[in-house]
Design a binder for these strands. Structure first.
Lengths: 204, 204
DNA sequence: TTCTAAAATTGAGTCAATTCTGTTTTCATG
DNA sequence: CATGAAAACAGAATTGACTCAATTTTAGAA
């Protein structure tokens, strides 16, 4: 069971995602009709629902690719952080934020976030939660690294701190994508200002 | 322009909200059909859309009532906070959290949050953002009060701290409503643990 | 090659939110 | 009281996501 059938399957997956990504960008998530995605991907509407449970899951597949790239990019920072707590956090969160609008528009982010709270048990809902957890874990890993280097006090609760930093950034990011006119530079500055309190508290 | 027409209008508003609140609770947000709400409120479907832009705005009206009650309850804490930073924060956030499931089910919260990110410019979307800001502002006011009393260092950036505390709580609350089996006590304990880092950093 | 069961595809049909258009009700004015 | 413009209402029509029964395609055994 890995000949023609499997190849066709992978190919249809790819075509659907490509068609959807293009249409979501052009017409917006709401504006992109399943019928149109199907036509562009050269499959029928029914086939799309054979591959994805619902429209949100198609968007979900695109979001997952994006976030996984971000996680990869973040690994470098964790392995080799700037020699200063504030800069280390700013660099890691900066990667998350700067990368975020590479493939996804703000409207796509809004939809993705909305769906993940609306249907937390759908495949995408669960995947999204897992991605959030992975990001939190990466921040926690950075903090552990800084503790190992001796830049952060050993008695700090790294888990709680990681959650605090991630939750704050994520909430700020949500507000950011809700306002089309919001700028990345302002978002980063606001987060830096908030983190300054933490940085002051945890440095050796 | 404030005779029969205005009275009927107010009355219809009330009937629609009451019918919707009941149906949302019983059948869930998705399960409640506009047609059914209309029938129960003794108006037509068209009339509902004359009063609310969309189904989400009806839920929005209910959420607004809830959050405004919470804000009111919070005023007491700000005016007369416990004589300990950790307890003061825990008490205020505790009011928010304990109150939250009074009128609204987790499913209603999920929908409300989803809609507010999905349609940030709809009447409800804007109202929801304003409510978030009001809650942040109340936390900031508590911190200012604690600074005035001398429990929190004067040189702490109260605005940034308020945002940090609110954003973290809000994100935790989002995760809380996403899992039906999550318990309020655990949510509060997790937030206390996170805030401990802050409390240690800002106390005199 | 032929055949069959399993897997996959198709697209017309269903369902519920939202829109639209014609009708009814209100109320300020003469 | 009349009356007509503005406001509000009703419910049929539209729209688009999603389902499902019928059909087609594939993989592998004989």
């Amino acid at each position: 069971m890995s000949g023609l059938r499997a190849r066709q399957k992978a190919d249809r997956h790819r075509r659907i995602i490509e068609a959807a990504a293009e249409l979501f960008r052009d017409a917006g998530y709401e504006g992109a009709k399943i019928e149109t995605i199907a036509a562009q991907a050269e499959v029928s509407v029914g086939t799309i629902y054979n591959y994805y449970q619902n429209k949100g899951d198609i968007l979900g597949a695109i979001v997952s690719m994006e976030v996984n790239e971000v996680l990869n990019a973040g690994r470098g920072v964790v392995a080799n952080p700037p020699a200063n707590v504030g800069d280390a956090l700013d660099t890691l969160l900066g990667i998350y934020i700067e990368h975020s609008l590479h493939y996804l528009s703000k409207e796509m982010w809004r939809q993705a976030m909305a769906i993940s709270t609306q249907l937390p048990d759908s495949p995408f809902g669960q995947a999204y939660t897992a991605l959030d957890r992975a990001l939190t874990e990466q921040i926690r890993a950075l903090i552990a690294r800084l503790q190992a280097i001796g830049l952060v006090r050993r008695d700090i609760d790294g888990q709680a701190l990681g959650e605090l930093v991630f939750n704050n950034m994520n909430m700020m990011f949500i507000e950011f994508v809700k306002r089309d006119e919001a700028r990345i530079a302002e978002l980063r500055a606001a987060i830096r200002r908030q983190n300054r309190i933490l940085v002051a508290a945890i440095g050796v």
